[in-house]
């Protein structure tokens, strides 16, 4: 009997009659978290799925599948051996959870918040063809730096990197990397890029006529030239697809990058820098064609 119960629980496909219980554990209120939850609530068929939305600090109760929205919820759910899909988490964060996790039986997967480096480089090549020198700044060298360098090399782009630390304050590193670069390629590093530093970074790079390639819509609004990113709605659609597959097969697909994305351009910045750039939709279509 108990064996049968476990079997039934583990294979939701067999219990079609009862809706799949999905609990969302949301790290923060508002913003992207809210857009994601609302899209999920409106798009996930309510006859087949019973959706509960909880704050990361709440007690979650029982469910067939947990969706952790953001790192805070992901970390809280990481220690529990329950089926978990992590979304709005950076790949590096998810990798860390995977590496630290004890042996487990329940499936776990993720849809990363970041875009694959290939996609960002594709945007760079499509938006600014002919770029030969790209700069990056970081507080600690990210593990993917060698692969960024290699992928750029394949496109004949030289990567110039500078660490920002106590002996190399931001402005020194910035001025020095801008000397060598035609584009500043933003890395997800809040030590370097935050609301307090972005003024200086954008004003200095603008003065040197070096555009920024950002990692979110906020960067483009602030004054970066362009960015490729996925909206919470796009991530929600991909999440629904994974939930539906889980409902059918009882398996979670492997951790993956967002498959749908947007390109945003700050056309005023492009014009001011006298950069003739294709429009956002054209760029997105061009990048989509890249396998």
């Amino acid at each position: 009997m108990s064996v049968a119960l476990v079997f039934v629980l583990a294979c939701p496909a067999l219990s079609r009659a009862a809706p799949l219980r999905v609990t969302l554990a949301v790290s923060e209120e508002g913003g992207a978290y809210q857009s994601f939850s609302e899209t999920l609530r409106s798009k996930l068929p309510s006859d087949k799925y019973e959706l509960k939305i909880k704050r990361a600090d709440d007690s979650y109760g029982g469910a067939d599948l947990y969706v952790a929205v953001g790192m805070k919820a992901a970390l809280q759910l990481a220690s529990r051996d329950i089926p978990t899909l992590n979304v709005l988490v950076p790949k590096a964060g998810y990798d860390k959870i995977q590496n630290q996790a004890a042996a487990r039986t329940a499936p776990r997967s993720a849809i990363y918040l970041d875009q694959p480096i290939e996609r960002q480089i594709a945007l760079l090549s499509a938006a600014l063809p002919g770029t030969r020198h790209v700069g990056v700044l970081y507080s600690a060298a990210p593990p993917e730096l060698p692969s960024i360098r290699r992928l750029m090399k394949e496109k004949s782009i030289n990567l110039h990197d500078r660490a920002v630390d106590h002996s190399h304050p931001l402005n020194d590193a910035l001025e020095s990397v801008l000397e060598e670069s035609e584009v500043l390629f933003v890395l997800p590093d809040t030590e370097v890029y935050n609301a307090g530093t972005i003024r200086n970074i954008l004003l200095t790079s603008y003065r040197k006529q070096v555009p920024l390639l950002g990692i979110s819509q906020a960067y483009v609004k602030a004054g970066a030239l362009c960015a490729v990113f996925s909206t919470p709605e796009q991530v929600a659609a991909q999440t629904i697809a994974m939930i539906e597959r889980y409902a059918e097969s009882g398996k979670l697909a492997a951790a993956q990058y967002p498959n749908d994305f947007e390109v945003s351009i700050n056309i005023q910045v492009a014009r001011s820098l006298d950069l003739r750039i294709k429009d956002a939709d054209k760029l997105r279509d061009e990048i989509r064609r890249i396998p």
Binding site: S27, G31, A32, G70, M71, L75, L88, V89, P90, A92, G93, K96, L113, D114, P188, D189, T190, Y193, N194, A195, I198, R199, L202, L203, Y206, I215, S216, A218, Y219, K221, A222, G223, F229, N266, Q268, V269, R271, S272
Partner: peptide
């Protein structure tokens, strides 16, 4: 901890129309 803030943070508008 690695956080999603790098992607989700709000940034001030720096290069506004009159600065360009």
């Amino acid at each position: 901890a690695i956080s999603e803030q790098a992607y989700l943070q709000d940034l001030p508008v720096v290069l506004s129309a009159s600065r360009l």
